[in-house]
Amino acid sequence: MEGSIKYRIKFKKTGCMKFLGHLDVLRYFQKAIKRADVPVAYSEGFNPHQLLSFAAPLSVGVEGYGEYFDMEMMERIDPYVLRDRLDAVMVDGMRVIDARTLPEKSQNCMASVTAAEYRISFKDHDFDFDPAYSLVGFYQYLDEIVITKKTKKSERQIDLKPLVYDCIYDKGDVLITLPCGSTENIKPELFMGAFYDYTGIDPAELQYTLFRLELFGGTYPDISPL
């Protein structure tokens, strides 16, 4: 909107709130913004709506620790004040952790995302090896990880190896960074599927919990948090 100022909000979605779907999170924030009584900008016409743009949707059941949306405001407001006003109206599990002003001509959140970092945390299991160690090994020692990616329309063979930006061992878990967004999008489940296929491990016997830790913009390797 003409004359509006863009802010980028960083939030956490944890605990039971991970069960909210993307549209429910959107509605949750629309109402929260109203409760916080901040000067958000609206579209014109009957049924005006807030000018918000959310970054990549998070799957139901996954906790997010570095989630983002952009909001346009009618007037300038101290980002810290904005953050605190929004954070004050959250429910358990939701936190607004940061707010900052964006330059006038910047791309919106949705278009800016290029990568996401996840934590893969294995649940208790009966194997006598450290699966996190195996997972990192799987990534490091194979020259190619070819999988079939199915979309609604097509099936295509892709090699995941060059698409995994990072895959490191971290205190019994694995941290993995993957392309995310509208250009290239690789879900961690796809990578895990390849791991199960290759090792022949039954996914029911080795379950894991997924966390999304951060969203990035920029072109790999030159990426930074949104």
């Binding site: 709130m17 779907g21 109402k31 429910v91």
Partner: peptide
């Protein structure tokens, strides 16, 4: 269980 069912947020409470 929550991941198996449709719209799990129906069952978690914690609303504003």
């Amino acid at each position: 269980i929550l991941m198996q069912v449709e719209k799990p947020a129906r069952y978690i409470g914690n609303e504003v």
